[in-house]
Design a protein around this nucleic acid. Structure first.
Length: 646
RNA sequence: GCUGUUGUAGCUCAGUGGUAGAGCACUUCCUUGGUAAGGAAGAGGUCGUGAGUUCAAUCCUCAUCAACAGCUCCA
């Protein structure tokens, strides 16, 4: 007998070689039907794999990420089986699960696949799935594995095998398909009830552009047909919220080939929205003891040599601007920090002066690769809500925690309740990518980990995701339809102060080196606005929205009264416009709804007589009649409650 | 940057080896209407750009630019 410890701490006895599925069955039949895999002593295993020793066991279902991944991984194998049946001779590279589904990289020889072929492949997959073929795990020697794939003439799998250790190699077979795979998999293909292939794209063998381009087919699968439908609805919703589409429709921003790719042009409404965000943060920053500074858009090459940016990004930047006479080189500013370091150096600093907090909405320019540009989320010129905090080492944690508070304040104010903090550390196996001493890195990483813990943030840790000069705490927010976006960032930096030889005089009258914190709650205004648009689907919070109220006269006869109403609103700092067009009221309402204007005031004979307005709310409809002052109170209250909840 | 797809009116998109069409938006006129599209007329494009093939190119070929998807990258 073996002892199985379940997540709640309870222990049960089972015969040796029992499987996770046996354990599930002993708990409930319903649970057993939903088990996709199991975590055995921290390792994800097949639910059908016999457990030989005492173990801690967590059963994994669709509700667990690892459970989903297992189903998707199995689905990749199923797709491979279907492909092998439909395209004999196809060769396989790898087929892993990804965040939303799975893919398989394949080599079709001289054949091609397009989205027109998806239906056929999906149908084949479902046909195979219905056979309920078990996924059979087979441990195999390296020699036998090589022999098998040689026989099959699958050079990619042979390549993969080279990197694997003998004694640690497993094959998985379902139906007529056998794959080199470490697993785990769901018990049988019957779990896969709904399948959708999403797209086909080229992908380099091993991700190296010098290598051959393979065909990558993306798909997703579900336990229920209903879940697939829901997923497709979500995708449609995401499409509707695409900030590039809404940005155009709502006249927020545009791009021009003439100005240059990746260089956004903010239209009046977009600029107004952005300005409001800036003012909002500025106000919060002043309260938090930040001092605004302003620095130029270019900087001398030497500045970036000192900072290390030149060495790291010099070749991949916009190329230098040369002065005609002195032949000196200037670079477009890719970051604000070197400039702010120079501001720090303008006068000798005492320990009593610290922390110093320099804030700047600094526009920076980075040469992003052609294929990377994407709407406002990835651009070549953008404005960071940047600030650099210079503090004593003993102040670091407190300052860091205060910055976390500020970031959380911003997220709450803008209605992003769901987020996690990603701690991005250095890749311990590739330290040459980074500048600075091991000691400084360790201190910085420690400070971040401790601060995040102290603030009780939900964190994940990513190795190798740090900036080249220091580790980061990145905030990953979830939007209204559950997608994750990286927004704010806080970074601890011991390196730039060293490179710029920043100092302060301590209470011991000795020179000391300050620590620097880089931080940007929004990240960049461009990216933030993009995320905000998609989050609220263009229905901005009242305090941010470019136009709050449209006054709609029933006919042109009431235009004068409408103008009077709008003027009264403007006098109360409400953003109001009159639709003076010669159109019927139904038409005006429709057009205003489409523009996502929060409030409509309909005015006609009745309203003019009584000096009132008829209120209609976006998507909600008629709200009755109010005096102008009553309406001003309503809207102000609504603006205020949004800000108070902030 | 790499691979693939796309580029026609302000927007969304049809279409053809003989220099172009729809809907919406726009302009004018009629209508002055009470809670999601009133009616009519009109204006608007050297079909991304450059070259080539052809008697003739928006359409075919090549190059180039840009957008989109994926890969690689992201201070």
């Amino acid at each position: 007998m073996i002892t199985i410890t379940l997540p709640d701490g309870s222990q049960r006895q089972y015969p040796k070689e029992s499987t996770s599925l046996d354990v599930a069955k002993s708990i409930s039949e319903g649970l057993a039907r939903n088990v996709l895999a199991a975590k055995v002593n921290g390792e994800v295993w097949d639910a059908m794999r016999p457990i030989t020793n005492d173990a801690k066991l967590t059963l994994l279902t669709w509700n667990d990420d690892a459970g989903k991944s297992t189903l998707w991984h199995s689905s990749a194998h199923l797709m491979a089986e279907a492909l092998e049946a439909l395209y004999p001779g196809v060769k396989f590279w790898v087929g892993p699960p990804v965040e939303n589904g799975f893919y398989y990289d394949i080599d079709l020889g001289d054949k091609t696949i397009s989205s027109d072929d998806f239906k056929k492949i999906e149908d084949k997959m479902i046909e195979l799935a219905r056979q309920n073929n078990p996924y059979i795990r087979k441990a195999i020697s390296k020699k036998d594995a090589i022999a098998y794939f040689k026989e099959k003439n699958d050079e990619y799998k042979l390549d993969l095998l080279q990197g694997l250790e003998d004694g640690n190699i497993t094959l998985y077979q379902q139906g007529n398909f056998t794959d080199l795979c470490r697993g785990p998999h769901v018990p049988n293909t019957g779990f896969i009830k709904a399948v959708k292939l999403m797209n086909v794209a080229g992908a380099y063998f091993k991700g190296d552009e010098k290598n051959k381009m393979l065909t990558r087919i993306y798909g997703i699968s579900f336990l229920k047909e209903k879940d697939l439908k829901e997923y497709l609805t979500l995708l449609e919703e995401a499409k509707k919220r695409d900030h590039r589409k809404l940005g155009k429709e709502l006249e927020l921003f545009t791009f021009s080939e003439k100005v240059g790719m990746g260089l956004p042009l903010w239209l009046p409404k977009g600029a107004a929205l952005r300005e409001r965000l800036v003012q909002f943060l500025q106000k919060a920053q002043v309260k938090a003891g930040y001092q605004p500074v302003i620095t130029p858009h270019i900087g001398h090459k030497q500045l970036y040599v000192t900072s290390g940016h030149y060495e790291k990004y010099g070749k991949d930047s916009f190329q230098p601007i040369n002065t005609p006479q002195e032949g000196e080189q200037f670079f477009l500013k890719p970051m604000n920090c070197p400039h702010h370091c120079e501001i720090y150096k303008t006068s000798p600093r005492s320990y009593k002066d610290l922390p110093l907090r320099f804030a700047e909405f600094g526009t920076v320019y980075r040469y992003e690769q052609h294929g990377e540009l994407h709407g406002l989320t990835r651009v070549r010129g953008f404005t960071q809500d940047d600030a650099h905090l210079f503090c004593r080492p003993d102040q670091l944690k407190e300052e860091f925690c205060k910055v976390i508070d500020l970031v959380l304040y911003v997220f709450r104010a803008l209605d992003f309740p769901d987020f996690t903090a990603q701690i991005s550390l250095r890749d311990p196996d590739n330290k040459s990518k980074y500048i600075g001493s091991d000691q400084n890195w360790e201190k910085a990483e420690q400070a971040i980990i401790e601060s995040a813990k102290e603030k009780g943030l939900k964190t994940t840790v990513e190795l190798g995701e740090a900036a080249f000069y220091g580790p980061k705490l990145d905030f990953m927010v979830k939007d209204a339809i559950g997608r994750k976006w990286q927004l704010g960032t806080i970074q601890v930096d011991y390196n730039l102060p060293e490179r710029f030889e920043l100092e302060y005089t301590g209470s011991d009258n000795m020179k000391h080196r300050p620590v620097m914190i880089h931080r940007a709650p929004f990240g960049s205004l461009e990216r933030f606005v993009a995320v905000l648009i998609e989050h609220c689907a263009g229905n901005f919070p009242l305090w941010l929205t470019p136009e709050q109220v449209y006054v709609l006269p029933i006919s042109e006869k009431y235009n004068d009264y409408a103008l009077k109403v709008s003027q009264l609103l403007k006098n109360s700092d409400i953003r109001a416009l009159v639709d003076e067009r010669n159109e019927k009221i139904g038409r005006k309402i429709r057009d205003t709804e489409v523009k996502k204007i929060p409030f409509m005031l309909i005015v006609g004979e009745k309203e003019e007589m009584e000096n009132k307005v008829s209120l209609r709310k976006h998507t909600e409809g008629d709200k009755g009649t109010y005096s102008i002052q009553e309406f001003i109170d309503i809207i102000n209250k609504e603006i205020e409650t949004k800000m108070v909840s902030a």
